[in-house]
């Protein structure tokens, strides 16, 4: 199925959890904040969210900035 990750359509396995998504993308979970369909998901709930077709996920982390 296709979902939108950081604004781009991407193919992911049906009903992946957010935890699985982060693992499959090779990201380090420590630094991340995730917004799922405009709702911020606390880290302890990542594994309970099962992604659906056309969902929108924003994955962000802190970086240097003025």
């Amino acid at each position: 199925m296709i979902i939108k990750i950081n604004g781009k359509p991407e193919e992911v396995k049906m009903q992946s959890s957010l935890t699985q998504l982060i693992l499959s993308k090779g990201l380090c979970a420590d630094n991340l904040v995730i917004e799922h369909n405009l709702r911020i998901v606390p880290k302890h709930q990542w594994q309970n969210i099962s992604l659906e077709e056309n969902d929108s996920v924003e994955i962000v982390s802190f970086v240097g900035g003025g």
Binding site: N6, G7, K25, G26, L27, C28, D30, N31, L32, V33, E58, I59, V60, S61, F62, V63, G64, G65, G66
Partner: peptide, 18 residues
């Protein structure tokens, strides 16, 4: 000190600025 947020991708630093 100011810090920003950015979309993370596979190329993102593994270090945490915080």
């Amino acid at each position: 000190a100011t810090v920003a947020l950015r979309r993370a991708d596979a190329g993102s630093k593994t270090e945490n600025i915080m």
